[in-house]
Simulated assay, not measured.
Amino acid sequence: MQNNYFLFFIAMLTGFAFIQLPVAGTIFSGLETFLDVVGIVIVIIFAIAIVWKAAQALFKG
Rank of each mutant, 00 (worst) to 15 (best):
F18V: 08
G30H: 08
F8T: 01
T26D: 02
T14S: 04
I45A: 15
Q20C: 11
L13H: 00
M12T: 06
V23I: 15
D36K: 12
L21I: 04
Q20Y: 13
L35G: 04
I45T: 13
I50G: 00
T33L: 15
V41H: 01
I44C: 01
A24C: 03
L35F: 14
V43W: 06
M12W: 05
V38D: 02
A47E: 04
F8M: 10
T14F: 08
K53F: 08
S29G: 05
E32C: 12
T33N: 15
I42K: 04
I48V: 15
F8Y: 09
F9L: 15
I48D: 07
I48R: 14
I10T: 10
P22S: 12
T14M: 06
I42G: 02
A11E: 03
V37K: 14
W52T: 12
A54T: 11
A54H: 10
I48S: 14
F6P: 00
F46T: 06
F16Y: 15
A47R: 02
I42M: 13
V38W: 08
V43R: 05
Y5C: 02
T14W: 05
L21W: 09
L31T: 13
F46S: 04
I27R: 11
D36L: 08
V43G: 02
L7N: 09
I19N: 03
G30E: 09
V41E: 01
V51P: 00
F46E: 02
I44Y: 00
F18I: 11
D36N: 09
F28S: 07
V37H: 11
L7G: 09
F28Y: 05
V23M: 13
T26M: 11
F16H: 12
A49V: 08
I19Q: 07
F46D: 01
G15F: 04
L21F: 13
I45Q: 09
I19W: 05
V51Q: 10
V38C: 14
I42R: 03
L13C: 04
G39D: 09
F8H: 06
L35E: 03
A17D: 00
I10H: 02
L13Q: 01
I40M: 07
M12C: 06
I45P: 01
